[in-house]
């Protein structure tokens, strides 16, 4: 039986997955991943190339099924093929290259594609599309051609296309990788807004360490396993592990840590410019 149960959130239980390289050789992409996401959480997944981030993401959308273990999306097991469409509707996915995701020649037609496929009535589609475009701040572009939009705008349209299917969760696999800094900020603020205002669960995969600062919880993957998780502060506080697996602490975080090492009495976990400025300005002159 297919039914969305919000109380459940998303859950991966001892998930193993192997990719076939050729007939003789397989690569273990996920090596027993246990992972739970509660409804309404904003989770950022970090990890070097080949650490299994994208493979894990595709499991949450039933694009891949575990070789071993189970993935539950709002109470539905991804192995239950009858639930596949309901899983994909409730946990939509946005990919890296915006040009590969937009299919129609007009923005609002592109956003309507999902609900049309779900068999929603035309008059309802109109409302869904309008609301979705408004939620990502693209309502003024409804009649535009997608290929004339900037990268950040295209990704917001792709997100609106997911929103029009009324998902509980959006999984974003490096949606900002091909964007410039302004476009990146545009996309990050959009998904933060969806999370805060509409309670949509976000799983965001990225190589940009500073994007982890938007998260409630950061997951760090390496060699098919989750090696660390916690608030951005806890995760980046363990800078030796971060650099060991080839990731970076964001520059301001690094500066806070270096200032502490130099004997300055501030929180070594300050990660943003404003946090560190406040920390420094609170220091009292003692002598």
């Amino acid at each position: 039986m297919t039914m969305v149960d919000e109380a459940w959130g998303l859950e991966a239980k001892r998930v193993f997955y192997r990719y076939e390289v050729d007939e003789t050789h397989k690569v273990l992409a996920l090596a027993g991943v246990d992972f739970e996401v509660s409804q309404g959480e904003f989770v950022v997944v970090l990890g070097p190339n080949g650490s299994g981030k994208s493979t894990l993401a595709k499991h949450f959308n039933a694009l891949l099924l575990p070789d071993d273990g189970d993935v539950w999306i709002f109470g539905m097991n991804t192995k239950d093929s009858e639930s596949t469409w309901e899983i994909r509707r409730s946990a939509g996915m946005v990919f890296q290259n915006p040009d590969n995701q937009l299919v129609a020649t007009v923005v609002e037609e592109d956003v309507a594609f999902g609900p049309e496929n779900l068999g929603v009535k035309p008059q309802d589609i109109r409302e869904l599309v309008a609301n979705a475009l408004e939620a990502v701040g693209m309502e003024a572009f409804n009649r535009h051609a997608p290929h004339h939009l900037s990268g950040g705008q295209k990704q917001r349209v792709a997100i609106a296309g997911i929103l029009a299917m009324k998902p509980k969760c959006i999984i974003l696999d490096e949606p900002t990788a091909m964007l410039d800094p302004a476009g990146r900020e545009e996309v990050m603020k959009t998904i933060k807004g969806l999370n805060e205002e509409m309670g949509i669960t976000i799983i965001h995969i990225t190589h940009f360490m500073d994007e982890a600062l938007y998260a409630d919880r950061v997951i760090v993957m390496n060699e098919g396993q989750i090696v660390m998780q916690g608030t951005p502060k806890t995760v980046f506080g363990q800078s030796h592990i971060i650099s060991q697996i080839g990731l970076d602490v964001p520059p301001v975080g690094k500066l806070s840590q270096e200032l502490c090492l130099a004997g300055i009495n501030i929180d070594p976990g300050a990660l943003t410019v404003d946090e560190l400025v406040d920390e420094l300005c609170q220091l009292k002159s003692g002598i």
Partner: peptide
Amino acid sequence: ACAEIVKELQRRGVAGAI
């Protein structure tokens, strides 16, 4: 940045600064 901040804290005679 680290060197510059430490220098300014020393100039200000701030506690905790070396």
